[in-house]
Amino acid sequence: MSILIWITLSKYSLLHLTTKYTMYRKGLAALPNVEVLSPLVTRVLGQNPGPKTLQGTNTYLVGKYPNVVLIDTGEPDKKSYTDLLRDTVRSSNLTVKGIIITHWHPDHLGGCGTVRTLLDEMWTSGNKTMCSNHGGDCAILGDSKVPEQCNVPVFKMPHAFDSEIAPGQNMHHLHDKQLVEVSEGCTLRVLHTPGHTDDSICLHLLQENSLFSADTVLGGSSGEFSNYTHYIKSLNRLRELAPVRVYPGHGQVEDGGVVDRYLSHRQDREGQVLAALRGEESHVGVGKLTEIVYQNENLHPGLVVAAQGIVGLMLEKLRADGTAREVEDGFWVAT
């Protein structure tokens, strides 16, 4: 097994220190490799199951036939995924107008170069239905020129790590509240929802009042964050939309009530952290607090470091609230 260390985002945790397993967590619903979820949405599974990716990264072909965008691209050099994507687009005779990336993590952005290479190869081999702007018109593209070879544009909220995760990929920058006209009868609104990462976005599919939540909200599992305060603000923003359906970055499709459930879960967890802190007679470290808070949850070994990061970030919020303080590096007491 290979160990992939993604980036240290807090002094308490490596947000993504993970072993890539060939299995995923027990108890998760099995998902088909390709599934039509609505007249406007088809999910293509990223073929990368694991304890943090669940059944794999959910990528989505979104739009009204034949024009679609691809939301997220999975991991780097994942041939099983690109083969699946190629077959799905080819069999449905779709036109991929652009790629939208929800955030910089490698299981969402990492496959960008591979996917664009696939589209170029399909273009030059004669399957010219699969290209970004061959004579069509889409507001996201800005023009309708016929290219000599396929060069699907990539759109993303900017982040410093983009060039490291996907080198050589020229990206167009998105902004909050931007409208993306994918096709007639399919409009996405960009929502900047920091918390999971600084550059995280969700996409509001206006015609369905549905939400592509990326890793801000997962299906059948709780998510992670790099800034807890921003994360809670983003969840509250999503709740105000009152979506009827949520298409997550990992896991099964959820009803709109999942956002409320997420907020309740985080509030409960924050209360558990404070209660554990108050239950200790002296200062206590993040590792010990994590053991106390998660003691009844049979935490997967590959998720322990991430859980410690969650506890550490919640402690930072409790400090800001005046209910906890750090007495020495990594050791805390209730106030």
Rank of each mutant, 00 (worst) to 15 (best):
residue 290 T to A: 08
residue 276 A to D: 04
residue 181 E to T: 07
residue 65 Y to A: 02
residue 324 A to K: 10
residue 69 V to F: 11
residue 306 A to N: 07
residue 265 H to C: 09
residue 82 T to M: 03
residue 321 D to K: 15
residue 289 L to W: 09
residue 224 E to K: 07
residue 328 E to I: 12
residue 258 V to Y: 10
residue 168 G to W: 07
residue 133 N to L: 11
residue 36 V to L: 09
residue 163 S to N: 14
residue 284 V to F: 12
residue 324 A to H: 10
residue 87 D to N: 13
residue 189 R to Q: 15
residue 242 A to E: 11
residue 142 G to P: 10
residue 273 V to P: 12
residue 216 T to N: 06
residue 220 G to N: 02
residue 259 V to A: 06
residue 226 S to H: 03
residue 244 V to A: 11
residue 84 L to V: 05
residue 303 L to N: 07
residue 181 E to D: 10
residue 183 S to W: 10
residue 34 V to T: 14
residue 189 R to I: 07
residue 215 D to E: 02
residue 46 G to K: 04
residue 88 T to S: 11
residue 82 T to V: 13
residue 331 F to P: 01
residue 55 Q to M: 08
residue 162 D to Q: 10
residue 301 P to Y: 07
residue 3 I to K: 14
residue 55 Q to G: 04
residue 169 Q to I: 15
residue 2 S to Y: 15
residue 330 G to V: 04
residue 254 E to Q: 15
residue 28 L to A: 05
residue 97 K to L: 15
residue 68 V to P: 01
residue 272 Q to S: 13
residue 6 W to C: 15
residue 106 P to D: 00
residue 96 V to Y: 10
residue 50 G to P: 08
residue 216 T to S: 11
residue 11 K to R: 13
residue 309 G to T: 03
residue 314 M to D: 03
residue 166 A to P: 10
residue 179 L to C: 09
residue 333 V to E: 06
residue 148 E to I: 08
residue 312 G to Q: 06
residue 304 V to M: 05
residue 117 T to R: 15
residue 262 Y to A: 13
residue 260 D to M: 11
residue 191 L to Y: 08
residue 124 T to L: 10
residue 118 L to R: 04
residue 250 H to A: 12
residue 53 T to H: 05
residue 153 P to W: 01
residue 261 R to P: 09
residue 64 K to D: 01
residue 25 R to F: 05
residue 305 V to M: 14
residue 333 V to I: 14
residue 72 D to C: 05
residue 63 G to V: 04
residue 190 V to L: 03
residue 302 G to V: 14
residue 51 P to G: 00
residue 292 I to A: 03
residue 285 G to R: 05
residue 22 T to C: 05
residue 207 Q to N: 04
residue 307 A to H: 11
residue 258 V to D: 03
residue 316 E to S: 14
residue 63 G to Q: 02
residue 153 P to K: 03
residue 122 M to I: 07
residue 13 S to V: 06
residue 80 S to V: 08
residue 277 L to H: 12
residue 222 S to G: 06
residue 266 R to E: 15
residue 41 V to P: 03
residue 288 K to Q: 06
residue 127 N to R: 10
residue 77 D to W: 08
residue 256 G to H: 10
residue 49 P to M: 00
residue 269 R to K: 14
residue 287 G to T: 11
residue 225 F to G: 00
residue 311 V to C: 04
residue 189 R to S: 04
residue 201 I to G: 04
residue 146 V to G: 05
residue 318 L to M: 10
residue 247 Y to E: 00
residue 265 H to A: 14
residue 163 S to E: 12
residue 88 T to A: 08
residue 144 S to E: 14
residue 304 V to A: 03
residue 10 S to V: 03
residue 62 V to I: 15
